[in-house]
Each structure stands twice: as C-alpha cells, then as structure tokens.
Design a protein around this nucleic acid. Structure first.
Lengths: 186, 186
DNA sequence: ACCTGAACACCGTTCAAGT
DNA sequence: ACCTGAACACCGTTCAAGT
C-alpha cells in the first residue's frame, strides 16, 4: 500500500467543492447543506468553517469551478473554427447534447436565479455558445437577421430541451439531424 | 362605506394562496417562507397553522390554484380549434409570449424540480401545449415525423426563451413571424 | 372561528479546545 | 494545520390561551 494512509484523509478545498457539485446534480441547489456535505465527507461542521469563512464564499468556489470547466469546454470548441460550418455545427450540438450532465446543468441554472454571480457565469457561457452558432449561420451565407433568428431557434430549443425533457416521440440523433436540415437549408 | 370593516380583515385560504403566488413570482420558491407571508398579510405564524396543517399542504393548495388557472387558459385555447391552422398557431404563440408572467412561470418550473406533484402539473400543461402545436403542423400537411420535430422546435424554443432570456438582437413579434414562416413552409 | 405568543427542533455560524 | 463539540440565531411547527 504505497498510497496515503486512509486513516486520516485530511480534506482539501477541492474535496469540498467536488462533493458540492455532486450534491448539486443529485438534489439541486436545495440539497447543498453543510450538514449533508459533512456526512458525505465524514467530518463535522467545524471542519467546513476551517476551510471556508461561510456558506457564501464556499458557494463562490463551487461556482468558480463550474465556470472553469465551462471555459475549458469552450476552449475545445474554439479549436473547431477551421472546419466546415455544417460539420462544426453538428459537432458542437453533439457535444452539448451527449457529453452533458443535464442534472448539473439544470441545478446551476436554478441556482443562478437566486445568485447574481452564478447568473453572470451562466449568461457568459450562453452568450458564447449563441455567438458561435450565429457565426456558423453567417458563414453559411444567411444575412445578419436570418442568422440571428436561426441561431436563437437552435439555442432556445437546446435550453428548452434541458428543462422540459423529451416531448412527443423519442427523438435522438436522427431528429437533431432533421432539425439542422430545416434550419440550414437556404 | 358599505363594504366589510377594515379593522378585522380575517383571512381566507385564497388570501394566503394569492400571497404565496406573488412571493413565488417575486423571489422564486426560496422566497416562500411562512414568516414572509405573515408579514405580508399582517398576522402571526399561528394564523397560518390554523388555516393549513403544514407547509406541504399549503404548497399543494398553491400548486392547485396555479394548475386551475392553466386549465382555464387551455380551455380558451380549445375554442380556437375551428380557425385556420396558421392563424391559430399565431394566436397561441402570441398568448403564450405576451400575456404571460414569466417570473411565475420560471418559479413554478424551478419548484417542480423538487416537488413531484408540481412537476406532474407542469408536465401536463407542457404536453397539452405541445400536442396542440403538433396537431397544427399535421393539419398543415406535414407527416407525423415532420410535424413532431417542428412542434418540438417551437415548444423548446419557447421554454428556452423563458429561461435564457433575450439573446442577440432584440426580437419581438417580427422575429416570431419569421420563425413561423421558416417552420411552416413546405 | 380566527388569531396571539411562547415553546421546541433544524441548520448556518462561532469558538474554545483537542491532536 | 485540521478537526471536534458545544453553543447560539433562524425558520417550521405545536399548542395553550385569548377575543
């Protein structure tokens, strides 16, 4: 057993933040209680207040980590700039639709409604994604007004799907492809 | 002054429920505290517990009233059945987009995430609206799969807009018209 | 019938004390 | 340096007592 002794784990800030993101995804903002975190991490409340001055500053750290992970994802999107617009759009949507933790996504958006700092981060990522999609429609030859509305439609449909869940017959990849055809045909 | 004396208002269940819906719209589910309601209504907590057995049953009454108001709205939609599909779609969307309290809409959807009963009511209204829109596309001559995806796009775009707010250039009625053109053209 | 006022449990917060 | 354990304020809940 060459690793650390399991007897005295000694928590780091990241351990607390990770536990909070798990709780957030599982139960939403209302589930993130200091007590719950303590049970999950096997310590008492005093431990929490040694690492953080209060709940607010802790939640800031949680929001920061969520934002940092978003920035990292967007950096990978930026690498797609060079490829052909149709294909780029398909990849961005596939990335957003498939490799995504919707429970966490919803929880963070809920949380944003009562926390201005979180709201700003969510708005920033929303704006980034929207502009990236809008740019694709411009590259496809639509004028500014048309690119705008097509990008909006896709963007809002995505957010709406995250919230309202599946409606009608089971969709999946084929339906996404058909929607892209409709919106990109000139 | 032929009305009731203002000295002893004596609250009804509806007074409590109305106050809760106001708080819900103003501050979201987290703002609905018994204390806050008491301040707003000018009574003490004991009064609340005379009218309701506990917070949960009170919130059920609040959710019921929201659901009843939705049922009433859908009854007015049902009257549109006879008119021409394009125009019917335009009226439904105008009704949903304009005459709507988005703060309350978001608050109820947030609330639905932590309350199964509320979630069921939201799902029921969502399903109703989606099917009404899908039916319109069928009447316009689209096949089942195509009507489904076009209805989904509209539905999710609407829900997404409620959540993510305005993106890009200011939209409004003209952009809605253009989106309807895109989705209804054969 | 409708409400007050005081009591108690729960969770965020503090802090002296432990290792 | 990191954590325990007991204390206190806040909000949901109860209930005897008032009008």
């Amino acid at each position: 057993m060459p690793r650390q002794s399991a007897a005295t784990p000694r928590l780091s800030i990241d351990d607390w933040v990770s536990a909070a993101l798990e709780l957030l995804a599982e139960e939403g903002p209302g589930g993130v209680k200091i007590d719950r975190l303590c049970v999950r991490l096997g310590v008492t409340k005093g431990s929490f207040y040694w690492h953080f001055t209060d709940l607010a500053s802790f939640l800031t750290a949680v929001a920061d980590r969520w934002g940092d992970e978003r920035d990292a994802r967007q950096a990978t999107f930026a690498e797609l700039e060079a490829i052909e617009p149709h294909e780029r759009l398909r990849r961005i949507i596939a990335e957003l639709a498939d490799a995504h933790d919707w429970a966490l996504e919803r929880a963070v958006r809920d949380w944003a409604r009562t926390d201005a700092a979180v709201a700003k981060r969510v708005e920033a990522t929303d704006r980034w994604v929207f502009q990236a999609v809008r740019k694709i429609f411009l590259e496809l030859g639509f004028d500014a007004a048309d690119a705008d509305i097509r990008a909006k439609t896709l963007f809002y449909a995505g957010v709406g799907f995250i919230y309202a869940g599946p409606q009608g017959q089971r969709g999946g990849r084929r339906q996404r492809e058909r929607l892209l055809e409709i919106l990109t045909q000139r």
